[in-house]
């Protein structure tokens, strides 16, 4: 031992890229470092693997239906198990209508609440208000469903829907949305419950985006003699515009995939597409939940998985769009502001 160490010290290394003296070699053979690194890499690559497996498996199972109906799978509104015809248009329609309605209700309320928290609220109120609204996100879908089923639906049927029919119903174009009997369990109620569920998403992200707007923007406007609202409208909102749109689209992504709450209030019966909101319907998610265990033959099952695959692709696209927009505001906020 001692002689070898002495030799090491006498002969200088040829380069700095040396293995190191045995004196400093680690006691274990294959480094625990390598084992740990390998473990961490495996888990990290498990996440993309799950995503790929998800997509591949769904497409394989959906293939019989997709191959048989082709484009008709998304353009036909004929969904008939007995005749073995599966067109998903009514489900797509239900999903689009309820999600858009939810956005229409939740965006003004959510952005308003975010503006209240960032611009108007007295300091002690800021955290409690945003915390309370964000707690909504922690409530499980099934509890929104229960509340919608027993509390919201009767109110919609007895009060809100007759009111909308009498006020909006006579109007020329949008009046068509509020025709027919008030059933309570319909697309309208589905949209309302979804709007409550996506509210926390819109509030929390809009709040972050608004907080990212430099104070100088507001001060500049106020110094020019603007009122507080004018400063918000002219200097804050244009600056945060892209991020707010991203927040709304992330809310849309959540609305598209919501299952239990919508399933419990949307009626799940009509398979026809009509112009009115006051009709029971299906969304893609509620159709899967309702019919998955009923699928008693291969083509029916394949069609249901096809709906799931469709839902996966659509929500992925919407999610990507939303994240790109939010990413743009958080990274290149100044550019967004100059354009606004």
């Amino acid at each position: 031992m001692t002689t070898r160490n002495a030799e090491d010290e006498i002969a200088p290394p040829a380069s700095w890229d040396v293995q190191g003296s045995p004196k400093f070699a680690r006691s274990s053979g294959v480094g625990a470092d390598d084992v740990f690194k390998w473990l961490v890499y495996t888990t990290a690559f498990a996440v993309p693997a799950v995503l790929v497996a998800l997509f591949v498996l769904l497409v394989i199972d959906a293939w019989p239906a997709l191959a048989r109906f082709g484009l008709g799978f998304v353009t036909s509104s004929n969904w008939d198990n007995v005749k073995q015809q599966f067109g998903t248009l009514p489900y797509i329609y239900g999903t689009v209508v309820t999600s858009l309605l939810a956005l229409l209700i939740a965006t003004p309320v959510g952005v308003g609440a975010a503006i209240f928290v960032t611009e108007y609220a007295p300091r002690p109120l800021r955290v409690p208000v945003s915390f309370t609204i964000e707690l909504l996100a922690a409530i499980p879908s099934i509890i929104f469903g229960l509340w919608g089923f027993f509390a919201l639906t009767p109110i919609m049927r007895s009060t809100v829907e007759p009111f909308m029919k009498s006020v909006v119903g006579p109007l020329p174009v949008i009046g068509g949305l509020f025709q027919g009997p008030s059933v309570g369990k319909d697309l309208f109620t589905g949209g309302v419950i979804l709007s409550i569920m996506i509210l926390p998403t819109i509030v929390s992200i809009s709040r972050e985006v608004l907080l990212a707007v430099p104070t100088m923007q507001r001060e500049g406007m106020l110094a020019l003699g603007a009122t507080r609202w004018e400063a918000i409208r002219e200097a804050v909102i244009p600056y945060a515009r892209v991020g707010i749109a991203g927040a709304a689209i992330l809310g849309l992504a959540r609305a598209l995939g919501e299952t239990m709450a919508v399933t419990m209030v949307i009626g799940n019966s009509s398979r026809k597409i009509t112009g009115t909101l006051l009709t029971p319907g299906y969304t893609m998610a509620s159709a899967i939940a309702n019919q998955f265990t009923e699928a008693d033959n291969p083509l029916y099952f394949s069609a249901i998985v096809g709906v799931a695959a469709l839902l996966l692709v659509v929500s992925a696209i919407v999610n990507i769009a939303a994240r790109l927009m939010i990413w743009q505001i958080s990274r290149g906020g100044a550019e967004g502001g100059n354009r606004g």
């Binding site: 769904l58 995939g257 929500s315």
Partner: peptide
């Protein structure tokens, strides 16, 4: 990928695990 998995509707996860 992780963000995309977060955005997958839970019912779709259910269909996947079933299959």
């Amino acid at each position: 990928c992780s963000d995309l998995v977060a955005g997958v509707p839970s019912i779709v996860v259910g269909v996947f695990v079933w299959a």
